[in-house]
Design a protein around this nucleic acid. Structure first.
Ligand SMILES: [Mn+2]
Ligand SMILES: [Mn+2]
Ligand SMILES: [Zn+2]
Ligand SMILES: [Zn+2]
Lengths: 165, 165
DNA sequence: TGTCAATTAACAATCGTTGGCAATAGAGTG
DNA sequence: CACTCTATTGCCAACGATTGTTAATTGACA
């Protein structure tokens, strides 16, 4: 994603207006490596601009995705995650417990498949998602607080645990 | 996934009853390589058993997933896809146009990452999703019916695989 | 300054999925 | 067979993420 200034210029060129709400969202996303959900972007934006609406956040995120400035990711956490990092090809580590997402820049050149394996598909992208528990969730397990003994919520990939970053 | 007969036995052992509805779903899933959604399983089951309910389908699919006999996949197509193939490690080709899913058994070397790359994550699985257009969708495009307007889909993916054309 | 896009509030609607309930069916057990 | 208890069904509500609607207001930019 470009800088907020460049994005403002880009928006003007495309006939879109540069509103303080959009600029606020640009700033929230700038250098953001947390792959935030729309809700998280909304909360961060509200800290600066309490009257901003969730609808505007969704609208602007979609605008940015259309322009190719961010990428909407479906990592199986139940909500779209938005990635301002669209320049470097990379993959993702996803914590299946808290949903935290980290970039992974490991060299996975073995990812190219031959035409025989493609089974007629015109393959355009290969996404790798590594799943596991993040360090925070692992250490938090050792620290007792056993109230979360797994009775109810089973392994549904839709687990929507709103954890604290 | 085991055979319907073995599944029936397994269900009995676990105290679950073997109903004709469940057996019907077992049969629908047996050897099914299409990665059907719950709705598709429902339709197939209804062909044999018109009064079966969608609720029972969901329930049984969840039961089978809990037992590890099938796997629920989130491939970004909007609905869970169910895979009776849980024995062989494999990956998936997904058509971003029609949602068709095919298994991919190619040997992907670089899929293991070192501990230094894992960033503290306890990595348990690595899923690779290759996205592209399937052969049917590609040939269907060539056959007239241009309709380049209509859906403003974005295609901001980088090619990570060897081009087939 | 004027115009028109953008924002807002307050909703309803969507879609996949789950949950609740009461009535009925039927699988397992003896 | 008879009993019991799970499963199924129908129907409908609810969920959570996202999009749509409408009307009123704001404000960016020419
Ligand atoms: Mn990323
Ligand atoms: Mn598969
Ligand atoms: Zn975590
Ligand atoms: Zn297709």
């Amino acid at each position: 994603m470009r800088t907020p200034e460049e994005l403002s210029e880009l928006f003007r060129q495309r006939g879109r207006k540069v509103t303080p709400q959009r600029q606020c969202i640009f700033r929230v996303l700038e250098g953001n490596v947390t792959h935030p959900s729309a809700e998280v972007v909304y909360e961060a934006a509200r800290a600066e601009m309490p009257t901003i609406s969730l609808k505007t956040v969704y609208q602007t995120l979609n605008d940015l995705a259309e322009l190719g400035e961010i990428q909407a990711l479906d990592l199986g956490t139940g909500m779209a995650r938005f990635d301002p990092n669209v320049d470097g090809a990379h993959h993702h580590l996803v914590c299946h417990e808290c949903g935290k997402v980290r970039d992974l820049y490991a060299d996975l050149d073995g990812l190219t498949i031959g035409q025989s394996d493609a089974q007629g598909y015109d393959v355009r992208s290969a996404e790798v998602v590594f799943r596991g528990r993040c360090e925070d969730c692992r250490t938090a397990e050792g620290a007792g607080a056993g109230a979360s003994a797994g009775s109810g919520r089973r392994a549904s990939f839709r687990a929507a645990t709103t954890a604290t970053e």
